[in-house]
Nucleic acid binder design. Structure first.
Length: 272
DNA sequence: CATCTTGTTACGTT
DNA sequence: AAACGTAACAAGAT
């Protein structure tokens, strides 16, 4: 479930524990979220460490602790972070719990597609450092977008937007929202976009990412009225602009909702 | 009960 | 060598 803004929302759920020591770590070796990880070492090295700060990049989360300890989290499809009272008893899907004096920091993930990483080193771990720059950053230029689309020219634009190496944080609902606003058919090949269409896509990417961060990341409220978000999951949902019935189909293996009126090749697009 | 899912990755093919 | 398409992973909702 969590995309860009939801991930940022969950990151902040642990902010209340900043500056405080981890007294005890609850983690069960063998749970899927710990795949490839030495859980005993994580427990040992995080115990006694002070949680200092955290950051989100796309769907990736990195929590820093004193003593050069780094905890990486990915929330997968159903992951959530929360702060609970210090006497919290973990349930079946509470895979990692960091106990502090005043609270418990909980990582909960029923579907177990999420992932925990851990590193003990003076600089941020390599997997973090090599993440692409944010869509809302200065580095995300139209030229960079165009070259990414060229590299994946045979792939439909919808699954292209889901590639985290190019569009960090974009998930299924954001991709549909972005294409709708850019006026692009989701099945178009990434390499088939004209200059104007690339420009529209770039603007739409920035608009949707900024909007999602502003509206969703602080309190998990829904995006504003008029966003496709509100219509896309209802069968028979209507385009917020033209009230056309949305098409729902699987594209690149994911359910896609789109407006056959707005998202047509002959139209200039830009339903802002 | 069958089918669906807002994410990623492994694997075989192009 | 890269890019591409598909299946697989798991559990809960409908």
């Amino acid at each position: 479930m969590p995309e860009l803004a939801e991930v940022e929302y969950y990151r902040k759920r642990w902010d209340c524990g900043r500056g405080e020591e981890i007294l005890r770590v609850q983690a069960h070796h063998g749970k899927r979220v710990f795949r490839g990880l030495a859980v005993a070492q994580l427990k040992k090295e995080l115990t006694g460490a002070v949680f200092t700060r955290s950051e989100a990049r796309g769907k990736q989360l990195l929590f820093r602790f004193s003593g050069d300890r780094w905890l990486g989290l990915h929330l997968g499809m159903t992951g959530k972070l929360s702060a609970a009272p210090p006497d919290f008893h973990p349930g079946k899907h509470d895979h990692l719990v960091l106990y502090q004096r005043a609270r418990a920091l909980v990582f909960h993930d029923p579907r177990v597609f999420g992932r925990v990483r851990f590193a003990s080193q003076s600089t941020a771990p390599p997997w973090w450092e090599s993440l692409p720059s944010a869509i809302t950053s200065r580095e995300f230029t139209r030229q960079r977008l165009a070259s990414f689309l060229r590299r994946h020219r045979k792939l439909s634009i919808k699954p292209t937007l889901l590639l985290q190496s190019g569009f960090p944080g974009v998930g299924n609902w954001m991709a549909d929202e972005i294409l709708w606003r850019a006026g692009l058919e989701p099945r178009r090949a990434a390499g088939s976009l004209s200059g104007n269409e690339v420009r529209a896509l770039w603007r739409s990417l920035r608009f949707v990412c900024r909007g999602a961060m502003n509206h969703v990341s602080t309190d998990f409220s829904d995006p504003p009225r008029g966003w496709l978000f509100h219509a896309r999951w209802k069968p028979g949902g209507h385009c917020p602009i033209h009230h056309t019935v949305l098409v729902r189909e699987s594209i690149g293996g994911r359910t896609t909702a789109w407006c056959p009126h707005c998202q047509r090749r002959a139209l200039p697009g830009l339903c802002f």
